[in-house]
């Protein structure tokens, strides 16, 4: 057991975790942030993507102890009350959602991308999202959603 401190969506947490405990399990089972999903448990599908200190990570292959001292963002932190983010809005507008299981991970990978690169090319988008598997949409609408989100963000800055 080890005591860790971190923030999730700006809220402080202090909790005891086992050395082999996985960050995704802590988020889902102890803190009840169930937006991140386990699709493979081996870092290959991206359904568990959260942002840790500004970087998109697959939380199913990160130990909880590695998150000690970090700032974590999950899908639950992307909307405030009835207000959803530009990215979330763009996913709805572009019909980039079918079953919805991969969607939280897709949104988080998109956020990490746009936070560091507000005007991504198709290739930038493909690289940033190639670790997120979607079996429903064929990705065309997701690529469009990322572009639309980038436009919205550009629009709000100017």
């Amino acid at each position: 057991m080890k005591t860790i401190n971190f923030t999730v969506n700006g809220r402080n947490y202090k909790l005891d975790v086992k050395d082999n405990e996985i960050l995704l399990d802590v988020l889902r089972e102890k803190l009840h942030f169930t937006g991140a999903k386990e699709g493979c448990g081996e870092g290959e599908c991206g359904a568990c993507t959260v942002i840790m200190d500004g970087k998109a990570v697959t939380s199913c292959i990160i130990l909880a102890v590695e998150a000690d001292g970090s700032d974590i963002e999950t899908i639950e932190g992307q909307s405030v009350g009835e207000e959803i983010s530009d990215i979330q809005e763009a996913f709805i507008e572009e019909n980039a959602i079918q079953c919805g299981f991969c969607t939280p991970g897709m949104v988080m990978s998109t956020k990490a991308l746009l936070d560091r690169n507000p005007d991504p090319s198709d290739e930038d988008i493909d690289i940033a999202l190639s670790g997120n598997i979607c079996r429903c949409t064929g990705y065309y609408s997701i690529r469009n959603a990322v572009k639309r989100a980038a436009e919205k963000k550009g629009g709000s800055q100017s």
Binding site: G35, E76, Q88, I92, I97, F101
Partner: peptide, 17 residues
């Protein structure tokens, strides 16, 4: 627009998972 898109995009949609 697709029904339940909002629940899915906010992570609110609860799967049996």
């Amino acid at each position: 627009k697709r029904i339940k898109a909002l629940e899915k995009v906010t992570g609110n949609a609860k799967f049996v998972h």
